[in-house]
Amino acid sequence: MSETKKFMYINRRPPYGTVYPLEGLEVVLIGAAFEQDVCMAFISDGVFQLKQGQDTIESGMKNFSPTYRALGDYEVTRIYVERESLEERGLTEADLMPLTWEDEDDDWAEKPSIQIVSRTQLSDLLEEQDVVFNF
């Protein structure tokens, strides 16, 4: 398969109320093997998926948040977080896990994966995509 398409994975739900975020992340990780042009977007309550210090012990749910830190190793290097969604929930970028990737074209420099974008910017990005999943 030589064709490359633009894939966007949109995450819009909180991490543990349903299985969609966990199973959505599984699609991203498997999809990484196909070497497409991949990005992720976190909007609405989906921004809670990236929050630092998640603790699920009391709820008995599997804490899968460490998996987001592996995304850089899967060459998922563009993670868009919607600014308005953060603000509406009283969050800032400092509340999020510091996700990074290593740029092999820049002496493996560690670079941030998360980009805070406005609703309008995200709308433009969405317009560019060939395949959109939302979880």
Binding site: F7, I30, F34
Partner: peptide, 15 residues
């Protein structure tokens, strides 16, 4: 596997 979903996204005109 999920690869079948990604492949469908690549091969089809619309998903």
């Amino acid at each position: 596997g999920l690869g079948q979903l990604i492949e469908a996204g690549i091969q089809a005109d619309r998903l």
